[in-house]
Design a protein around this nucleic acid. Structure first.
Lengths: 145, 145
DNA sequence: CAGAATCCAATAGGATACTG
DNA sequence: CAGTATCCTATTGGATTCTG
């Protein structure tokens, strides 16, 4: 094994390996390992962007609609509902007319920000490398029409 | 603003808010902010599990097929290809007969482990809270048939 | 304003059979 | 063994219209 350079992936590797071992044994057949549930949510098209938008400050429905470009009302409604259901955001209705509704991160939602920043930072610093790798790969592989 | 307890979401919040500001200004309309690209990949059904499996040790195609339960050959092939294209894993063919192919994380792939562990840890510690929130939500909302 | 409801297109992904 | 190729279904998500 060559020595791994940079940060400390060794710790990360070990931690993951251990968890993976555990999951494989008793939780995998049911696909109920927590990663799946979380990443399925974070992986959809809008969840992350909404959380990021709300990390700025609490916002109303139509504010979010403008803050997250290209999202449709349908998807905003649905994603907000899912996030509320998971306890990541809280919904507060002000009985004005017309009604206004404010969404804000819960403390659970706030606690997601750190892992998210870690991931976003990785994405930013890795972006260039990935781009290069893609270009190289596409140059090798014919990339069919 | 009440004082936030636990870790330091304030730093996270600030970091995210800043990035979000930047994206909104010049990169959002193109939806090319790095998060999207990364999370779209990590969000699919198998990427994470494969990376986790490979974090353990390099593995061959059929080993992975067994290590990641319920994945189909089709999806394994495709996800491995995508990961290779992005430079996260490397593919090495041994010209035996029948041929054997080994996949391993590249250093870029290794560097993803840390953010991943952060996320996985969050998922594990938050799992119970989320479950509770869901139950409470479903109790309030009729949850239609 | 903040959604709910309906319709429809694109994509993801499973099952199966075939190949070098 | 390590894939390809084909088919088919389910889910995602966009566009549009309606409502309290």
């Amino acid at each position: 094994m060559t020595r791994l350079r940079g940060s400390n992936p060794l710790g990360a590797r070990k931690a993951l390996a251990e968890r993976f071992q555990t999951w494989s044994v008793n939780a995998f057949d049911l696909s109920l390992c927590p990663v799946r549930g979380v990443l399925d949510r974070l992986g959809d098209k809008w969840t992350t962007l909404i959380v990021i938008a709300l990390s700025h400050r609490p916002q109303r429905f139509s504010e979010l609609l403008r803050a997250v470009p290209d999202i449709s009302k349908r998807m905003l409604t649905q994603t907000l509902r899912d996030l509320e259901r998971d306890g990541l955001i809280a919904r507060q209705v002000f009985p004005t007319k017309p009604p206004s509704v404010e969404y804000r991160l819960t403390s659970l939602g706030e606690s997601l920000l750190e892992p998210l920043v870690t991931l976003v930072s990785w994405a930013e610093t890795s972006q260039a490398v990935i781009e290069t790798a893609r270009a190289a790969f596409d140059a090798r592989e014919p990339v069919p029409a």
